[in-house]
């Protein structure tokens, strides 16, 4: 554990809490892509099955349980509790375009051809593109509420901080995991356009909404 990794995890946790609080306090999931959230729930489920096979640390297990719980709580809020506010007319990204290639890729390119390892690999590939329905939705409606923007910024920062952690680990420990690194770079690059807008437009004092051009 190094400071970059910890900062990445905190940023990830912050993103999830921001989203849950936003939906809960506004009693609405307007502007939130349920499809992205379904894919994040699939991601954590596939990746954290090792909760039952591997104990790494109390920190590790606790965070996994929090991420899993929060992912399903978010789905509950979107698809059950505040279903009436779900903006499905704008959440039209075709998820099969993400699911099918990531399943195929995880079977073809993995560290070990075993069920748990393939599921881990699938989760890494799927996570890297899971935000696309959300970004697509924001570009389609042309705006994101500022709180949604904060969520996206925290979520994007998480993998960017992980990249710095991987650079650090390469030099400090000689450790690297090419699958995680390549997917993590792809994931971070997808946020670049958003980061640019967040920093340039989001910093205006009275900005409550930001526009994102497709």
């Amino acid at each position: 554990m190094n400071v970059f990794r910890l900062a990445g995890d905190i940023s990830h946790l912050l993103a999830i809490i921001i989203l849950l609080l936003k939906i809960w306090t506004s009693r609405s999931c307007a502007g939130i892509s349920g499809k992205s959230q379904v894919m994040f729930a699939i991601t954590y489920t596939a990746r954290y099955l090792d909760l039952f096979t591997n104990f790494i640390s109390l920190y590790n297990s606790t965070m996994k349980i929090i991420f899993l719980g929060a992912a399903y709580a978010t789905l509950y809020l979107i698809y059950v509790r505040f279903k009436a506010t779900y903006d499905h007319n704008h959440d039209t990204f075709r998820v099969e375009f993400l699911l099918i290639p990531t399943v195929i890729l995880s079977v073809l390119i993995n560290h070990d051809f075993s069920p748990l390892e393939i599921l881990w690999t699938f989760s890494i590939y799927l996570e890297s593109v899971a935000i696309l329905p959300q970004l697509f939705m924001v570009s389609k409606t042309g705006e994101a509420e500022s709180i949604t923007s904060h969520y996206l910024f925290a979520l994007g920062s998480y993998r960017a901080l992980y990249i710095i952690n991987w650079v650090y680990r390469y030099y400090a420990e000689g450790f690297y995991d090419l699958i995680a690194i390549v997917a993590g770079v792809v994931q971070t690059v997808l946020y670049c356009d958003f980061f640019y807008l967040y920093i340039t437009k989001g910093s205006r004092a009275n900005a409550t909404e930001m526009s994102i051009e497709a």
């Binding site: 965070m63 560290h111 390892e117 690297y176 090419l178």
Partner: peptide
Amino acid sequence: SIQDTTHDEL
């Protein structure tokens, strides 16, 4: 490189 299949990151 260390390519064991224990993943210690989240």
